[in-house]
């Protein structure tokens, strides 16, 4: 059932993530290599942990011989935001059969963002598209880490600043969402709360409160935002 077409469409969706993942994966592989680890460790971590900013911290945790409890706490602290991603994907994911566990495992910031913006054409297999997007992103990350661990020291051109591609991705998706009127109040909620908590709590601690209070406010605004006729009137206005 149009498998090839679905896979090709999915590949096109992942291109904005590809370069960033390959180069950030390489940076991780190289960092672990410089800390004295065999490249297979980089490969194993990217394959099994698959979480960008946590992996960079792992290099420090591993080489410093950190305690297990401390490592667990740091993971919860850094990746806590991931709790929120599944909320909008429960319905779609649970129809995915044996791919369901992998889809949950591979739900990174970037995969979540790409899945949010991808509108699968009706003649393609949506499950196939979502699975291929998740798998390809994971492959880019693993391959990048492998390359970084093996040959990162031979990369001679300056890659400083390439991490901005992830910022660009999130901001661009924000711009896309802003075009839809229904997203404006949620987006403003997220922005305003981020600024407030950034000022109050500082750059390392603002994200979880921002997300939690966003959920709370959106739930409170449900009778206003989610009233059935709101979306219909907006459809008509467009």
């Amino acid at each position: 059932m149009k498998k090839g077409e679905s896979i090709r469409f999915a590949f096109q969706q992942t291109i904005p993530v590809m370069l960033g993942y390959i180069f950030l994966g390489m940076a991780f592989g190289l960092m672990l290599h410089n800390a004295g680890y065999h490249f297979l460790w980089a490969f194993a971590i990217s394959l099994c942990v698959y979480a960008g900013s946590l992996q960079f911290l792992l290099v420090t945790l591993l080489s410093g011989g950190a305690g297990l409890l401390y490592s667990a706490m740091m993971t919860f602290f850094i990746n806590g935001r991931h709790i929120f991603y599944g909320l909008s994907l429960v319905e779609k994911y649970r129809k995915m059969g044996k791919r369901y566990p992998y889809m949950i495992f591979s739900l990174t910031d970037e995969t979540y963002s790409i899945l949010c913006r991808t509108k699968v054409p009706a003649d393609l297999n949506e499950n196939q598209v979502m699975f291929t997007i998740s798998l390809l992103n994971h492959c880019y990350w693993v391959l990048g880490s492998l390359a970084g661990g093996l040959a990162g020291q031979f990369v001679t051109f300056d890659t400083r600043g390439i991490d901005f591609s992830m910022t660009a991705l999130f901001v661009a998706i924000m711009v896309e969402q802003w075009q839809e009127k229904k997203n404006r109040i949620p987006a403003m909620t997220g922005l305003v709360l981020s600024f407030i908590f950034l000022i109050l709590l500082g750059s390392e601690r603002f994200i979880l409160p921002s997300l939690t209070v966003s959920v709370f406010i959106l739930l409170c605004a449900r009778s206003y935002l989610g009233r059935p006729d709101a979306e219909i009137t907006e459809e008509r206005q467009r």
Binding site: L87, L89, K182, G190, F195, V215
Partner: peptide, 23 residues
């Protein structure tokens, strides 16, 4: 409530993520 969040939460998450990258 979760269906509703699925519809409206992504825009808030993306805004927070954008600020997170620029933090």
């Amino acid at each position: 409530g979760i269906r509703y969040l699925g519809n409206y939460l992504p825009a808030a998450i993306m805004a927070v993520l954008a600020i997170y990258c620029l933090r």
